[in-house]
Design a protein around this nucleic acid. Structure first.
Length: 276
DNA sequence: AAGAATGTTACATG
DNA sequence: ACATGTAACATTCT
């Protein structure tokens, strides 16, 4: 579930939780496939005794940097969540890993679909090298987006979702940005005009900033929807203009929102505002 | 009760 | 080399 704004929200909450300077005493792992690298026994040995120096976000990854030069990157994929427990823990069948801290607390990883992954590495830069630019960074400019979009001939939405091209967008915010910019998701990327690209640039940054401001998007009431640390919900759902608003009126022109498949993902569009 | 779900990747095919 | 399609991962939600 989590896209850039949701991951940023989790990181912000983790940073507020007094984790800097804490030592990870021990890792308990109940679903070994969660640990992508290194092999489980090495992972457990290496992470034990690590002191958390900083917590950051890059793309959709949560990055824990340790004082010993290693770092832990966590990708939540669809349903990953962290919870900080003090003494007693609420029972949950989907706890797959627990990091025990030196202050008596535990950071536990919950993931109903078990798609999330932990990467423990002493070469974080290497791990991050393949990702495209951060859309909210100053280095991400209209010129940069022009280059990304013009260099290839692909449908614009799958391109936006490709983390090697731009980091952090997922299905929700890609749909929102394309609606905002009035661009059809199947538009070949190299046919966008300069004006289109500028609108898209502004739209991407607008919807991501808004998502962060609202602490992420939590859809519906299912327990495997997005929740940040603890069980705090995002407040961005009411700001969505098209995502999962199929058949409801377009907020600009009242045309019913259509749902179409693009690159094997559902897309929500106004066919009048976003003609092909 | 079938189909879809906020993500990624390996593999196949054009 | 690049673009696109399919299946897989595993469980819940509509």
């Amino acid at each position: 579930m989590p896209e850039l704004p949701e991951v940023q929200t989790v990181v912000n909450d983790l940073k507020c939780a007094d984790l800097i300077g804490r030592v990870i005493l021990k890792a308990q792992v109940y679903w070994p496939k969660i640990i992508a690298t290194p092999p489980l026994q090495l992972f457990k040995r290496q992470i034990s005794g690590s002191t958390i120096e900083s917590i950051q976000r890059r793309a959709k990854l949560i990055l824990f940097y340790f004082e010993n030069g290693w770092g832990l990157a966590v990708h939540l994929r669809m349903t990953g969540r962290f919870q900080l427990e003090d003494g007693q823990h609420l029972p949950n069948r989907h706890v797959h890993a627990i990091l025990e801290l030196d202050d008596g607390r535990c950071l536990r990883y919950i993931d109903t679909r078990k798609f999330g992954r932990f990467y423990l590495t002493n070469d974080m830069n290497g791990l991050l090298a393949a990702y495209g630019p951060e859309p909210l960074d100053r280095s991400f400019t209209v010129a940069k987006l022009t280059q990304i979009v013009t260099q290839r001939h692909r449908q614009i939405k799958p391109l936006l979702l490709d983390q090697h091209c731009i980091a952090g967008l997922g299905n929700i915010y890609a749909d929102e940005a394309l609606w905002e910019a009035r661009i059809h998701p199947m538009r070949p990327s190299d046919t966008l005009s300069g004006q289109d690209i500028e609108k898209l640039y502004k739209a991407i940054r607008k919807v991501l900033r808004q998502g962060i401001k609202h602490a992420g998007t939590t859809l519906g009431n299912g327990q495997s929807n997005f929740y940040s640390l603890g069980r705090s919900r995002g407040r961005n759902e009411n700001s969505l203009q098209v995502f999962r608003r199929t058949a409801q009126p377009c907020k600009r022109c009242n045309t019913p929102i259509a749902r179409i498949m693009v690159g094997q993902r559902s897309s929500h569009i106004c066919e009048k505002c976003q003609p092909l």
